[in-house]
């Protein structure tokens, strides 16, 4: 068989390329991920969602109750910067008219009108923030939770422009000095990255329910798997009339409200 110089060089080049890829392959084979598995204690679900019973929250909770907010922000090292322009928040309260634009009218019942509503990331089934992220730093897990990989975020804030719920916060400055009490079991964030509610994936992985759900002593927050017919959240959704924020945008939010 005769091989021309040209094809010899081509073949040589291909082999050389193959060899340079070898270490990469080896690294993959030796990857520690083969020895990693989920915790057997972990709460597993296919479509995690939350139902917030604002009626219970209003009627049972003391005036101005913020226990869920405090618990979340404490456990996740959310800073208290004090300047509304740079505010970082995962779960907070908005008046009804702000949480549900266009839904308030002047004759609305007084128990709802102007009342604070809990808002957080909706962990949309069709999340625009995931669609626009150029590095997959924000992504939807198999169990439906939309999370941030802050190791990867480049801080372009495209997700903040894309989120119709204002659920995302950007770290305009180093948050560390503004965290009143560090939770040493959880990382903080750093300046230049975006963050938001993670539906407590770190707690689900250890078999615990979300911090806000646990903190609410009146059971106003119900967390569960929509795909599980026996889940408590399915009970709430099938027995009460619930609404979601801005459903017309097609993001399919997974936080439901009993008004």
């Amino acid at each position: 068989m005769k091989i021309s110089r040209r094809s010899f060089l081509k073949m040589g080049g291909t082999f050389a390329l193959g060899f340079t890829a070898l270490p990469g392959l080896k690294a993959f084979a030796a990857s520690g991920l083969l020895k990693a598995s989920p915790d057997p204690k972990a709460l597993a679900g296919k479509k995690w969602a939350m139902a917030i019973n604002m009626k219970v929250c209003r009627e049972k909770g003391p005036e101005g109750c913020k226990e869920c907010v405090v618990a979340c922000h404490q456990v996740h090292n959310v800073p208290d910067i004090g300047n509304p322009k740079e505010e970082v928040k995962w779960i907070w309260k908005e008046p009804f008219a702000n949480a549900f634009p266009g839904q308030e009218h002047e004759y609305l019942e007084e128990t709802v009108k102007g009342q604070p509503f809990l808002v957080l990331c909706n962990h949309c089934d069709n999340p625009p923030c995931v669609r626009v992220c150029p590095t997959q730093a924000t992504f939807k897990r198999k169990d439906g939770i939309v999370v941030m990989d802050d190791h990867r975020c480049i801080g372009c804030r495209f997700c903040m422009a894309a989120c119709p719920f204002g659920a995302r916060s950007f770290n305009f400055r180093d948050p560390r000095p503004y965290i009143p009490k560090l939770n040493r079991e959880f990382p903080t964030r750093e300046k230049g990255v975006v963050e938001k509610c993670n539906f407590c994936v770190e707690r689900l992985a250890a078999g615990l329910s979300p911090a806000c759900v646990e903190a609410c002593r009146h059971g106003a927050l119900v967390f569960g798997d929509l795909e599980d017919p026996n889940a408590g959240i399915r009970d709430v959704l099938s027995s009460r009339f619930t609404i979601r924020r801005k459903p017309e945008l097609g993001t399919r939010p997974k936080v439901y409200y009993v008004v």
Binding site: R131, V132, C133, P134, T135, Q136, A137, R152, C153, I154, G155, C156, R157, F158, F170, N171, K191, G192, V193, V194
Partner: peptide
């Protein structure tokens, strides 16, 4: 102007490291 707007400009090459055809920015 895009680079000065980034919160983490040192990670700019993540755009190439994790190419994401679904993102318009890509």
């Amino acid at each position: 102007f895009v680079i000065v707007d980034l919160g983490k400009p040192m990670r700019l090459l993540n755009l190439l490291l994790y190419p994401t055809p679904g993102s318009i920015m890509f």
